[in-house]
Deep mutational scan, measured.
Amino acid sequence: TKEGQWDCSACLVQNEGSSTKCAACQNPRKQ
């Protein structure tokens, strides 16, 4: 995982660090 990116806890899609919700399932980003 690149720095600043995060993996969705629900569907495991990798998202940009600037995103607050998963691009695939709209699950909110977990801190």
Rank of each mutant, 00 (worst) to 15 (best):
N27M: 05
Q5E: 01
Q26M: 12
D7W: 01
T20V: 06
C25H: 06
E16Q: 03
S18N: 13
C25D: 09
K2M: 15
S18M: 11
N15I: 03
D7E: 14
R29K: 13
K2Q: 08
L12F: 05
A10C: 03
D7P: 09
K21C: 04
A23T: 10
S18R: 06
S19H: 09
S18P: 04
D7V: 04
G4S: 13
T20M: 06
W6P: 00
T20R: 02
E16F: 07
K21P: 04
C25G: 04
C11W: 00
S18Q: 12
S9M: 07
D7A: 11
R29Q: 15
N15D: 08
A24Y: 02
V13I: 09
P28E: 15
K2H: 01
V13E: 09
T1F: 09
T1W: 00
A10S: 03
K30Y: 14
K2R: 00
N15R: 06
Q31C: 03
Q26A: 11
C22I: 01
G17L: 14
C25K: 08
P28L: 11
C8I: 00
S18L: 10
Q5K: 13
A24M: 02
G4H: 11
C8R: 01
S9N: 08
T20W: 03
K21V: 05
K21F: 05
R29H: 11
C11S: 02
S19N: 11
P28C: 13
S9Q: 12
A23E: 15
G17F: 11
A24D: 11
W6C: 01
K30A: 07
R29S: 11
A23R: 07
N27T: 15
G4R: 05
E3I: 04
C8D: 01
Q5I: 05
N15V: 08
V13C: 04
K2D: 12
Q5R: 09
W6T: 15
Q26T: 09
G17D: 15
V13F: 04
C8S: 02
T1S: 06
C11Q: 06
C11V: 00
Q31V: 07
K30S: 08
C22F: 00
C25E: 07
C25I: 02
N27K: 13
T1D: 05
D7K: 12
A24Q: 09
R29M: 15
S19W: 10
D7Q: 10
N27Q: 15
Q26F: 08
W6R: 12
W6Y: 13
D7Y: 04
A24S: 11
L12S: 00
P28K: 15
C11L: 00
E16P: 02
D7I: 06
R29G: 14
C11P: 04
G4I: 14
K30T: 13
S19D: 15
S9F: 05
Q31G: 15
T20E: 06
G4Y: 14
K30V: 02
S18H: 10
K21E: 09
C11G: 06
S19G: 10
E16H: 06
Q14W: 06
K2W: 00
Q5F: 02
W6G: 10
Q14K: 13
Q31E: 08
G17N: 12
C8L: 00
K30G: 00
Q5H: 09
S9C: 08
E16W: 03
N27H: 13
S18D: 09
P28T: 12
N27A: 12
D7T: 05
V13M: 04
K21I: 08
P28F: 04
T1E: 09
D7S: 08
G17A: 12
Q14T: 14
E3L: 02
Q5M: 14
A24F: 05
E16V: 04
G17H: 13
A24C: 05
S19L: 12
K2L: 04
T1N: 15
C11F: 01
Q5P: 02
S9H: 11
N27Y: 07
N15S: 02
Q14P: 06
A24P: 05
N27S: 10
T20Q: 07
C11I: 00
G17R: 09
S19F: 07
P28M: 07
E3D: 11
K2Y: 03
T20K: 08
N27V: 11
N15W: 00
Q26D: 15
K21L: 06
G4A: 12
C25A: 03
A23L: 04
G4C: 12
R29I: 11
G17E: 14
A23F: 03
C22S: 02
S19M: 10
G17I: 11
E3W: 00
S19A: 12
K30M: 15
Q14I: 12
C8K: 03
N27D: 15
G17W: 07
Q26P: 02
L12R: 14
P28N: 09
Q5C: 13
N27C: 09
C22R: 02
A24G: 14
D7R: 06
N27R: 10
K21Q: 07
S18F: 07
T20P: 08
Q31Y: 04
S19Y: 14
K30N: 00
Q26I: 05
G4M: 14
T20L: 07
K30P: 09
N27F: 08
C8N: 03
G17P: 13
V13Y: 02
W6I: 15
N27P: 07
G17Y: 12
S19T: 11
G17V: 13
K30D: 11
T20A: 11
W6E: 14
K21S: 06
Q14A: 13
V13A: 12
N27L: 13
C25T: 03
K2E: 05
A10H: 15
C22D: 03
C11E: 01
Q5D: 03
G4V: 06
E16Y: 02
N15E: 07
Q5L: 10
R29W: 06
C8Y: 00
E16D: 10
S9R: 05
S18C: 10
N27G: 14
A23M: 08
C8W: 00
S19R: 08
E3Q: 14
Q14L: 10
T20I: 09
C22H: 05
K30H: 14
W6A: 12
Q14S: 12
W6L: 07
S9P: 12
S9V: 04
T1Y: 08
Q14F: 04
V13S: 08
N15Q: 11
Q14R: 08
A10V: 02
R29D: 11
R29F: 04
C22G: 02
C22E: 02
E3A: 00
N15L: 03
C8H: 01
R29Y: 08
G4K: 11
A23I: 04
C8G: 02
V13P: 03
E3Y: 05
G4P: 07
V13R: 10
